[in-house]
Design a protein around this nucleic acid. Structure first.
Length: 556
DNA sequence: ATGACACGC
DNA sequence: GCGTGTCAT
């Protein structure tokens, strides 16, 4: 097969782009791993081109400057390869994987090219490693599949959700390339200190526990503090009848044993998850480059790994290791009470609506309504805490059991509290129960943009209750994900005019930018504008308020 | 491989 | 409720 280059390649590409609305593209496997790209394949359903990837800038402009999306089997790595070689990529992608994931709606499905071809009764694609011709045939199959998946998404009322996913590919792909600026030396120092403290603490704990167990061969206590089972046994031997060795349980033990054990477990976490394994993810540029899964959770939220930047402990020195250079700053945008505002919008509850319109302290307002006494951040704080626990529980789809665990009460009391809550907010109860009934009847829950999550409803009561919780919660959590993804897409386009400003991270309802210090106020306004605009596009009448913070480190 | 735990939202 | 990562079994 002919490998085109130079002017003939550009002419052929222009021809193909004129004939095919959404052509599929792919780059060679090495290019996806970050090596210099060798070859590019562009295909329509009935034609294909193979092009030598030798720095034809004109080709890049041709592919990325169009208003229409490009298609790919898995768009993110292709986008990254295009950005690495041309400094730019298209604004939207018709990604076969993401489309199939949306249609699957949380049900297990074979997302490979072969599997999807079989599902849609297309000819099985050949093995790409066989030849250039086989590769081109595969890319052609991608073009055919995307042509079939797109109308299916529309038919299932997921056109809006899929357009959001299509425009979130570029910002997410570019965020991975950017990474977060990171102070590895500081991290190393913190880890070393944690190791030291852990060692001395483990020696002190050994002398306490030794009294029952007796010293082992090596003079230690014989109790492996890192093993839940042995630690529990040792505590039983000392007469502490603990049900488990969770932090909350250990905290109740008398000093110095209790506090020491709590601190030890803390340090254990810090030295394992945050030790050298974390440093392995520092790139050659000194920055941390995680991997984002665009539809990582069944609700539509992103997931993050290697490392998981969504689980960095707040309020610890470790967080300050994410730090910009002196002449730059983070601009951190955070949706305030996002899930609750979505709940307010979707349920049309008047009290919630008023509280958010006036920007009141919602937890205090809810507590005042439920308990019939005036509650503020200072008066009757314990009542505010209980209201807050319910509000959070609702946002996360907790049942009475979960609420009891969260508040430290028994299930009866939790049920009581929930009943009181729903008497006070009948609209919220109606909305949640409507969602549960509709979800079970239709077999899926959905967000405001049409994103679906299919429920597997078993025969038993537990499985039914589980499905109901998901049906109540997914529309809220999933709509939050829709909004954040839409904001990422808007921001990516807006930041094309600010090449010195980078999109570096996102954590569910938070977006982190990095820019030069002098333009931080401008970027802060831009971040706030686009985040609230995304909210306004999806929610019907509840404004989303966005807290924006400027900081050289990643804390708020 | 799996369960327990701890972190985030 | 949804995730990821670590360790011990």
């Amino acid at each position: 097969m002919e490998l085109l280059r130079g002017q003939p390649a550009i002419r052929a590409t222009a021809d193909l782009l004129g004939q095919v609305a959404v052509p599929a593209v792919d780059v060679d496997p090495g290019a996806k791993r970050g090596e210099t790209p060798l070859a590019l394949c562009i295909a329509g359903p009935h034609q294909n081109l193979l092009i030598a990837f030798d720095g034809a800038d004109e080709l890049g402009a041709l592919l990325t400057a169009r208003d229409k999306p490009l298609a790919a089997e898995d768009a993110k790595p292709v986008h990254q390869a295009l950005v690495r070689s041309w400094g730019q990529g298209p604004a939207r992608w018709a990604c076969m994987r993401l489309s199939a994931l949306l249609l699957a709606g949380g049900r297990p499905r074979d997302l490979t090219l072969g599997g999807l071809s079989r599902d849609l009764q297309l000819d099985p694609p050949p093995d790409a490693s066989l030849s250039f011709a086989a590769w081109a045939a595969r890319v052609q199959t991608v073009a055919q599949l995307v042509n079939r998946l797109s109308p299916e998404l529309k038919r299932q009322e997921m056109g809006w959700a899929s357009r959001i996913e299509a425009s979130a590919v570029a910002p997410i792909a570019e965020m991975e390339l950017c990474g977060m600026p990171f102070d590895a030396a500081l991290w190393q120092r913190l880890t070393r200190e944690a190791f030291e403290e852990r060692r001395t603490l483990s020696q002190r704990l050994a002398t306490h526990l030794q009294t029952v167990q007796g010293p082992d061969l090596f003079g230690g206590s014989g109790v492996n503090l890192d093993s839940d089972a042995t630690l529990k046994a040792a505590l039983h031997a000392l007469g502490h009848r603990v049900p488990d060795v969770r932090r909350q349980t250990l905290a109740l033990l008398p000093p110095p044993l209790g506090p020491d054990l709590v601190r030890y477990r803390e340090l254990f976490k810090l030295t394992s998850a945050y030790g050298d394994s974390f440093l392995a993810h520092v790139g050659l540029d000194g920055r941390i480059h995680p991997t984002f899964e665009q539809i990582g959770a069944s609700t539509g939220r992103l997931s993050c790994h290697n490392p998981n930047l969504q689980a960095i402990v707040k309020g610890t020195p470790h967080r300050a290791c994410f730090r910009t250079s002196a002449e730059r700053t983070f601009v951190i945008g955070d949706y305030a009470a996002c899930e609750l505002r979505i709940l307010a919008d979707m349920s049309d509850d008047p009290v919630f609506a008023e509280a958010f319109a006036k920007n009141e302290d919602l937890h205090a307002r809810v507590a005042t309504e439920i308990f019939g006494v005036k509650v503020t951040k200072h008066e009757h704080v314990e009542l505010r805490d209980r209201a807050k626990a319910i509000n959070f529980g609702l946002a996360y789809g907790m049942g009475a059991g979960g609420l009891a665990r969260a508040t430290g009460t028994d299930v009866t009391q939790a049920r009581d509290l929930l009943a009181k809550y729903f008497r006070t907010f009948p609209k919220i109860r109606a909305f949640l129960e409507h969602n549960a009934a509709l979800g079970l009847a239709r077999g899926y829950a959905h967000t405001l943009t049409g994103r679906r999550l299919y429920l597997d409803v078993g025969a038993d009561n537990d499985s039914r209750a589980q499905a109901e919780r998901i049906a109540k919660n997914m529309p809220i959590q999933g709509t939050s994900a829709d909004i954040t993804k839409l904001a990422l897409a808007h921001l990516r386009q807006a930041l094309l005019a600010h090449p010195d400003t980078l999109l570096v991270n996102t954590v569910h309802d938070e977006i982190v930018l990095e820019c030069p210090l002098p333009k931080a106020p401008l970027i802060a306004e831009l971040l706030r504008t686009h985040m609230s605009r995304a909210g306004a596009e999806i929610l019907r009448h509840t404004p989303l308020s966005v807290d924006v913070v400027l900081s050289p480190t990643w804390d708020k």
